[in-house]
Every structure is written in C-alpha cells, then in structure tokens.
C-alpha cells in the first residue's frame, strides 16, 4: 500500500501547538571566576509564557542574551526555533534573530533616530520591504501600543513608559514569534507598568507570540500570568482573568545565584515552602 503521508517540515512542527521553541539544556556560563549560570535547563512551549524571577544579578538577563546569541554559553545546548544557537556563528545567528524580538531593560532605543525610525529599523535597514508598506507597519504597531501620535518624536522626548512601549513596538514590528522582555517594567510607576503588562498579554494572546518575561517585579509577573487579553465582538480588546488552562500556560522559573530553585505555575509558586521564595514573595 502506498504511503500518502508527507513528512512534516521543521517549520510545520515548530508552528504546532505544544512545540518547543526555546530549549535550554544544562547551560553554564562564568565570567572569570564568577559563575553566572549553573546547569540551567528549561523549555518554552509555542504560545506559552515563561516568567523568570530572581534578584538583581542572579543571571536572568544573561539567559535572554544567550537565547539571542548576544552572549555565548560556556557549555550546554541552546535550541531556538529548531536551531542550535550555541553552535552558530554571528552571521548565522542573524537568521535566527529574524524570529526573535527582544525588549531591553531601558528600552535601548537609538538616540539619533526618531520613534518611526526606531520602530521600523529592521524593516527599513534589514529587509526588502517596500517603503510604503514599512511605513504602514510602523504606524500599525505604534497604534497598537497607543503611541501613534509620537511617531516623529525623538526618544529623548519620551517618558520612561513610552520608551518601553516604543521598544515593544520595535521588537514586534517584524512579527517575530518569540519575544523576550528584559525587565520591561522595572522603574516604571504601577499604572505605566500595567500598560506595559497589558501589551505583553495582547501580543501573547492575540498575536500568539511565545514570550519569556524576565523581571523581579512580582506584581507584574503575577498579573501577566493570571490575566489574558481577549477581543470582544465589537473588536475592543479587554483584559480579563485568565482561564485555568490559560493560567497554566504561564510558567515561573526562579533563579538564585545562577541556579534554578523553582519551576512551576503561579499557584505552585505561591504555595512553595522554600524560605528564599517565601522571602522573595513577601
């Protein structure tokens, strides 16, 4: 009998629900004598959120930089979208980064470029997209983060929260399937932080972007994990309490001195009896 089933491509496998998009396996990194990451292993599933908690200097941001290939691990294996990024050269990494967006701690907006040029940087400089189409995409994503009227401003004219939202717009402009948030709400007032959290949820729940959120802001971490964005019949986006299934898609990791000391969902984290976690949560 003839077998009519066609084998799936890596692209198809990775786009399936439940496919792993980021895999960290026994990753270690040290700068001189200081160990930053010690045997870190975790998996990010497509469409899910991984929230990495930990004190300053515990190795959270380093983890994101290893995923994007900005830093190289000393040992261990790192898979991103089916590619072993720990073995790729800087040139080969450029392709992997085409599907990875990263929001840096202070936004890392380019000072000499306007908001439009910042948001559309990749489209204008690193793609063949026609200029008109790129302009439209920039306007669309700025509208999405509610900053359409700031399109011709310089980054220095924006507030801290606006800079983070422009950074989110820049990271999402080229429609990556994975977004990495490095302390996206640190230093912001609670209202602005909530706005940024809601952008994270909207991207995750409406655009189906897989996310890794690095933070030490517990309020934001739990808010992102326990809420979800839904689009109403009238097209308006609303933030509501997450369903139990949705809540389980957000997994927490707690890193302490480069070691994972907890991995689980929001309920498990709240129920942990580990004294360090208790202190962290209190």
């Amino acid at each position: 009998m003839e077998d009519t089933a066609t084998p799936q491509t890596a692209e198809e496998i990775l786009s399936e629900p439940g496919a792993p998009v980021v895999v960290f396996d026994q990753v270690q990194l040290a700068f001189d004598d200081k160990v930053i990451l010690r045997n870190i292993s975790f998996t990010l599933i497509s469409g899910h959120t991984k929230i990495i908690l930990g004190a300053s200097g515990s190795g959270k941001s380093t983890t994101l930089k290893i995923i994007t290939g900005l830093l190289r691990a000393d040992s261990g294996v790192v898979w991103v979208n089916g590619e072993r990024v720990d073995q790729l050269s800087e040139k080969e990494m450029m392709n992997v980064r085409g599907d990875l967006g990263m929001i840096f701690q202070e936004g890392a907006l380019f000072d000499s470029l306007t908001v439009r040029e910042n948001v559309g940087y990749k489209l204008y400089e690193e793609s063949d997209m026609p200029l008109e189409q790129a302009h439209r995409r920039v306007e669309e994503v700025l509208g999405w983060v509610g900053l359409a009227e700031y399109i011709d401003r310089m980054p220095s004219e924006l507030s801290g929260g606006q800079r983070r939202r422009v950074a989110i717009a820049r990271a999402m402009a080229f429609k990556p399937r994975i977004l990495l948030y490095d302390e996206a709400t640190t230093g912001l007032d609670p209202i602005t932080a909530t706005t940024v959290d809601e952008e994270i949820m909207k991207l995750r729940d409406l655009e189906h972007v897989s996310s890794i959120v690095v933070t030490h802001q517990l309020r934001d971490a739990f808010y992102v994990a326990t809420h979800m964005a839904v689009r109403n019949d009238d097209g308006k986006v609303e933030i509501v309490r997450a369903t139990p299934e949705k809540e389980r898609e957000a997994e927490f990791i707690m890193i302490r001195d480069g070691v994972i000391i907890f991995e689980g969902d929001a309920d498990a984290l709240r129920g942990s009896t580990d004294p360090y976690i208790q202190t962290f949560l209190s």
């Binding site: 930089k65 450029m94 940087y121 400089e125």
Partner: peptide
C-alpha cells in the same frame, strides 16, 4: 561608548545588524 552602556549595540545585533558594518 554611550551606545554600548545603554545596550544599543546589543539592540543593533538583536535586530540583525552587524555593528561593525553599521
């Protein structure tokens, strides 16, 4: 130097640009 300390060089690389060429 300012671009390095404000992570703009990392941002360039993350956006697929080689900082040496740019």
């Amino acid at each position: 130097g300012s671009m390095v300390v404000t992570d703009q060089i990392y941002a360039l690389r993350a956006l697929g640009t080689d900082p040496v060429r740019k």
